[in-house]
Design a protein around this nucleic acid. Structure first.
Lengths: 217, 217
DNA sequence: TAAATTAGTTAGACTAACCTAACAAATAAA
DNA sequence: TTTATTTGTTAGGTTAGTCTAACTAATTTA
């Protein structure tokens, strides 16, 4: 049985290594992610290595072992199922689900998660469009691009967000967007990539930062 | 913000002081309840006193302050709402809900509890028949007696159980009983108080220990 | 390639929650 | 009312997870 803290380290490592593409992470990087000091991470890495959850050598890169990855994915599964529950059943808004799910993901009860999954009718994606790993840690990968990649005059459908922070999600809601909404790209400035999009007939000008964080198909 | 552990101390104190009738608890008593050593309780009492959650003097009795009681009741509220959720929505059985609710009761999110309460349609009693405190810590008290107090030939309706342990609850299910079921008391041995009851037309012989732990009206 | 910067490590310290062992106070029993 | 028992306290120690400060290794830049 892992502690709350150990679980958080695995989850953060999963995120970092996945996003980096290289499957590797550094001490400082992980420290920043977890909002602790590098020295603290160093101590914890020794413990995680001892438990064969990570692979790492002094001054080397950090990698998750298969077991570490599996446990990390279980936590992600729990997190995303809880987010779905909060959003669909308890009427939480898009930007409120994450914080509470951060706590709920640590509840230890395999039965609870199975039952919750069933209660939610085995969802494949959470309210942010992120795939929910199944019991074996497998997840549906959907082909997707960022809104930035859509050519002028093109149309697409929003399927996920990259940034899960409240300010961003509230901004998304403000321009009339939500999951599965259709977006038209009307124009784009050469100079600063400011893009004019149309959602539900309403036009908005958004930045590159914004379009980079919207996933579409 | 209280720690998980501090919350458990308040909850245990609420239970002990309520059940004793005197509104007081002792160090050893509390230690037994929490499965820790008296020395540990002693340390924690100093901290709780510092935070004005308990009243106590060296070698004296432990009493909850109004604040301590209020917080304790909030935790009981959360615990019982979660039990109701697990039982009614996720099809957990009677004897499985407690353990998971012990974890869920510590999730910090007032909004979550409000929403859950609404989702469950503002229940007043949990699956064991225990009253759920409202936002102000008030709870519906229902007049009730134990099954032991019912005279021979009498009838009654089960409204709650006193013992929440799995073995007892499974036993209750085995004799065909559940909340709001009608019970007939057919006979009772003078010598050892073995009682023959009838539920749904099925007769069972049960001990005094059993009848003491069934609440009826 | 030598100096500067960044990344990672170590040692030593702190807090919360627990423990054991020894002791003191209060209560019950002889 | 003295003794025995139960109950509660204290002192000192442990572990997990955190920190700071000082250090070393690796990498980047001039």
């Amino acid at each position: 049985m892992l502690s709350y803290t150990e679980e958080n380290y695995l989850k953060a490592l999963l995120k970092i290594t996945f996003e980096s593409g290289t499957n590797e992470a550094g001490t400082n990087e992980l420290a920043t992610h977890l909002a602790v000091k590098p020295a603290t991470v160093n101590d914890m890495l020794k413990k995680l290595k001892e438990k064969t959850l990570v692979d790492y050598e002094k001054y080397g890169k950090i990698r998750l072992t298969d077991t570490g990855k599996k446990i990390g994915l279980e936590i992600v599964r729990k997190h995303r199922l809880w987010e779905t529950f909060l959003y669909e059943k308890l009427e939480f808004s898009w930007d409120e689900v994450h914080e509470v799910a951060e706590q709920l993901e640590h509840i230890q009860s395999p039965k609870l998660i199975e039952k919750l999954d069933k209660f939610l009718n085995f969802p494949e994606f959470d309210p942010h469009g992120d795939p929910i790993p199944n019991t074996d840690g497998e997840l549906k990968v959907q082909f997707k691009r960022t809104l930035s990649e859509i050519e002028i005059g093109g149309s697409c459908k929003m399927v996920a967000v990259k940034d899960n922070s409240s300010p961003f999600l509230q901004y998304v809601v403000n321009v009339g967007l939500s999951l599965h909404k259709k977006i038209k790209v009307l124009s784009k400035q050469e100079y600063d990539a400011i893009t004019v999009i149309e959602v539900n007939g309403i036009k908005s000008s958004v930045s590159q930062k914004f379009t980079d964080n919207i996933f579409v198909v």
